[in-house]
Design a protein around this nucleic acid. Sequence first.
DNA 1: CTATATCTGGACTGATTGGTCTTGAAAGGA
DNA 2: TCCTTTCAAGACCAATCAGTCCAGATATAG
Lengths: 186, 186
Amino acid sequence: MEAAVERAMDVFWSRGYHGTALPDLLQATKLSRGSLYAAFGDKHSLFLRALDRYIADALARMEFEFDPLKDPIDGLRTYLTGYVERTSGANGRRGCLLVATAMELAGQDAEVGRRVAGFFRAMESRVADALARAKAVGKLADGVEPTSAAKILVCFVEGLRVTGKTAPARTSSQATADALLDRFVR
Amino acid sequence: MEAAVERAMDVFWSRGYHGTALPDLLQATKLSRGSLYAAFGDKHSLFLRALDRYIADALARMEFEFDPLKDPIDGLRTYLTGYVERTSGANGRRGCLLVATAMELAGQDAEVGRRVAGFFRAMESRVADALARAKAVGKLADGVEPTSAAKILVCFVEGLRVTGKTAPARTSSQATADALLDRFVR
DNA sequence: CTATATCTGGACTGATTGGTCTTGAAAGGA
DNA sequence: TCCTTTCAAGACCAATCAGTCCAGATATAG
């Protein structure tokens, strides 16, 4: 059941909502038409399940990266490096279900809009928290405000996901991310 | 004719490629089915025309903002303010045809992929050029490398277009953009 | 072995997709 | 006035869309 959601997520991920047809989902989930509708209701509901799964994965990752027991600067570094990895080469071309969904549906689909907005808020607050902890131990450059810098970093990584669709080289993106973080840390 | 492309662009802009159906385009362009196919061939070709138009508009805007005769820092400020305006409130919710297209099609449609990649390259080089001119007159902060900072700024504004789908307040986005630029200028 | 419950593959629905073609009205030139 | 060209309106096409339904195979339970 949960495996079916994951496989459906993969399909939506690489084809978008309007771009995936029922047969694609049937083939990926290995469910019959009847079973799929019995289990998930309709295409839209299944999509929401897949999106929730995607968001949960991302939140779990951040929970690990921004663990309060670890050094916040290290956390920010691995957070950025993770995005660099996901937005380079073939990974980059694959794109991001959340960003694609934001662009495709967030403006017209309220259920989707709430989820997307909530995710961006959650990411921003986690990054801001890490920055605040870094500032508390004097590791931030002068004049860097955690909440403002967090907004910058969130926009930056989501922008990486966009430019990543053209499959840039990992080394280049990594250097860019490093250059940005260097503007914030002491 | 060119007006029809513009109206078609508006439709693709707010509904995406797969999300717009022929009747939507007929209504928007006020063309009959036969005329539209005679003029543009098919949906995909019309979409390419619309995308090219969108890109041309953006390039023209940058040509103005980054006019070599003007102060490059002023140019960067108005460039960023323009994106803030376009990614706030209702404008933000409307989104960006280029970013939406990048996420929806760039990975699978080679014609689209080339255009998207070319646009990002063009924007990056224009921003880098402005930064280089600013650096030449000593207006950049220590250690800021124009090409690297340009990549950061491009990712940032494209990320703004993504987070903008949740319709944030203009003042907040403006403060964020200002905070980022302040990290680069002296 | 029988009864029940579950699930599959696929037929089927009405609506909609992108695209073609025909008909007839309007317009323009000679 | 007459001939040609242009174009709008919409009928029409095969394919595909999301979603429903059912007959039959399979499995489980008693």
